[in-house]
Design a binder for these strands. Structure first.
Lengths: 229, 229
DNA sequence: AAGAAGTCTGAGCGCGTTCACAGGAAAGTC
DNA sequence: GACTTTCCTGTGAACGCGCTCAGACTTCTT
């Protein structure tokens, strides 16, 4: 087994964002470096040799595209996951997915970002894991973005999908409403934790048509994916 | 085995609270420091280098979130367990579970706080122990928040769960009703100690379905988890 | 521009949880 | 064995948590 940790370089000038991604990615077992501006980022790619770069499009010195252009000129082929604001720049980012790059729009949710990173790493062969998550007769395939139970395909909205993914990654563990909110919803979500209840309800309605209940309520604590006793 | 004691910094301006936590945590084998305000707390983090900080959100000088912000700017990554009042602060707690931080609402029960601290320390690798407690054919898993006897899952209410946890942590020892009340119930509980009897009764009813009695009454003193002779 | 899909809020309802209390059982005492 | 003390457990009331649904609002499609 070749287990050098996959290396991720996070480039953003907002410290809350880098802190957020840094802690989440570390927790996921990545070797993380952080950079706050474009020039430093280019230098770090050289020294750190990351497997993927998380790159904000709006940086104080160089813009994200310029950074990538220079990296490519230097011969680096590291794939980039852009973090773009949801405005004009979004158009510029389109079409990048050809070179193996991809993008998510700010504000993102962590599950979203992590899923994308894993897709990139898998396509590169850096991350050995499969694109499928399994629990009981449930199957979630990130590459195809398809969920099945007992063979049947289940149609899920984006939020439902992210929620189920988070539950499956943490199968067996109890997750508090706030934990769920922090990982599944966009980081700037201002509403109340009761949305989680609504979406758990949606998920149950769709999942439990095809078998026994899988999402357990732990009263006063949260929810947990578990096979009923 | 590397057993330097885990270090905990407790920050609160109410002396009853710090006293309470100080003694309980010491008794649990932690190396504890106490601080009564924000500025001092920041200084202590630097000097004492704690593994976790117990931080009241409402402090006379700086508010808890501001303290964390400053700590992060200083590069400290120490996880924080917030002690918050159950109202307004609830909203501001967003994003906390990402950096490994968490919160409990005042008034808390000691078992609650200690369980949370252990979760944080385990996740950090500071506390080697597992998330499971065992006694005879009983098993309590804090991660999944599940209790089993002889393999069967037992559904417990929050209070029942905390009570059983306290009994298991102190297996073999006799615990008085007041000790139990002090650790399992919220510290401002005003009722009578007879509740304990009620909950012992609930627990016995659920546990003893699956095997011989485990909770022994020690007349005139209290209760004890013990395998019948 | 209109329709469809997705998201989120708020309210109502049901049920589990918590706790006091009281009558009866068990243990200990003389 | 009778008496006292301690403990057990059923009943019931108040409360709060969690589930669900309708509807407003936003965003994506065509």
């Amino acid at each position: 087994m070749n287990d050098r940790l996959p290396r991720v370089l996070v480039v953003d000038d907002e410290e809350n964002i880098t802190f957020l991604l840094d802690s989440a990615l570390r927790h996921f077992g990545y070797d993380v470096r952080v950079s706050g501006n474009g020039r430093d980022a280019i230098a770090q790619v050289e020294r750190f040799d990351p497997d993927v770069v998380l790159l904000d499009v709006m940086l104080p010195d160089l813009d994200g595209f310029e950074i990538v252009r220079r990296l490519r000129l230097d011969g680096s082929k590291v794939p980039v996951l852009f973090l773009s604001a949801k405005d004009a720049t979004e158009d510029k980012v389109r079409g990048l997915t050809l070179g193996g790059d991809d993008y998510v729009t700010k504000p993102f949710s962590l599950e979203e970002v992590i899923a994308r990173i894993q897709v990139i790493l898998r396509r590169q062969g850096t991350d050995a894991g499969s694109s499928k998550l399994n629990f009981a007769d449930l199957e979630l395939d990130d590459d195809a973005h398809v969920v099945r139970r007992a063979g049947e395909v289940i149609e899920l909205s984006p939020t439902e999908y992210n929620l189920l993914r988070f539950l499956m990654v943490n199968a067996g563990r109890v997750l508090s409403r706030n934990q769920i909110l922090d990982h599944v919803w966009q980081y700037d979500f201002g509403g109340h934790a009761t949305v989680v209840e609504t979406y758990i309800s949606y998920l149950r309605k769709k999942l439990d048509k095809l078998g026994p209940p899988l999402i357990q309520t732990v009263r006063g604590v949260g929810y947990s994916l578990r096979i009923a006793a």
